[in-house]
């Protein structure tokens, strides 16, 4: 007996490989918006900015109010 596409999809949802892939995806996309993580992201940006300013002092200026 042939199964239609939807039935196949429903069956595939229970497939162990898919379940595992979704579990891992959920782990890496379970992003935090906590204050600590946000502060860390600001710090990474500031570090890149400071390093660019230090290495290329006559080139980089971050004083543009358009952004």
């Amino acid at each position: 007996m042939s199964l239609d596409s939807n039935t196949f999809r429903e069956r595939n949802k229970q497939h162990p490989i898919r379940k595992n892939a979704l579990e891992n995806f959920s782990k890496v996309t379970n992003f935090s918006v906590s204050k600590d993580v946000r502060r860390y992201m600001y710090q990474v940006m500031a570090t890149i900015g400071l390093e660019l300013e230090r290495k290329f002092p006559n080139t980089v200026h971050f004083d543009d109010n358009r952004f």
Binding site: T29, V33, K35, V37, Y42, Q43, A46
Partner: peptide
């Protein structure tokens, strides 16, 4: 405004749990 320096390099605390329920 928050100010950072290049010496301020404490990495993200590994115990900081990733958590999608917007805690704030």
């Amino acid at each position: 405004l928050i100010q950072f320096s290049l010496d301020d390099t404490s990495p993200l605390n590994k115990s900081t749990k990733a958590n999608n329920s917007a805690e704030e």
